[in-house]
Amino acid sequence: MTRDRDADATPSAGQDLVGGLLTIAFGGFALSKALSYPMGSALRMGPGFFPAILSCLIIVLGVALALHALQRRMARQAIEVRLRPVVTIAIAVAAFALMLERFGIVPATIALVLISSLAASRLRLWRSLILAVVMTGAVYVIFIVVLQMPLTVMNW
């Protein structure tokens, strides 16, 4: 519930600085790529022309954002990263992706539900197990029986 309240306050100087630097890095990377494509002329623009303009604009705006941060007093305010949900959801989705074609949608769905349940602050094992079974059934009915999508069901 804190998220939307945060979204309306002004970003901190630290958020501006990190955001600005990342923007510059992104723009710089894109520019280096764009310059490797033919530029063409103003009359007949090559594939590199437009991305190069965009990248330069992004770099300029990134510099503006970073400078804006340096103008302000740096409050020692940490950017709070909640690692647990990021890591568990990443592992869950990666597991699903790796299992889907090799083992089929049934084991992949079970893995996805069980692993992603760990992202919650409190683990309720029985609830997760029941949810995994119910979800697998629902997925089977919706995607295999009703929509008849060409998915591997189970392949041990």
């Binding site: 949900p85 568990t88 992603s116």
Partner: peptide
Amino acid sequence: LIANAGWV
């Protein structure tokens, strides 16, 4: 989902 997981 990442931002809201574990939200009570």
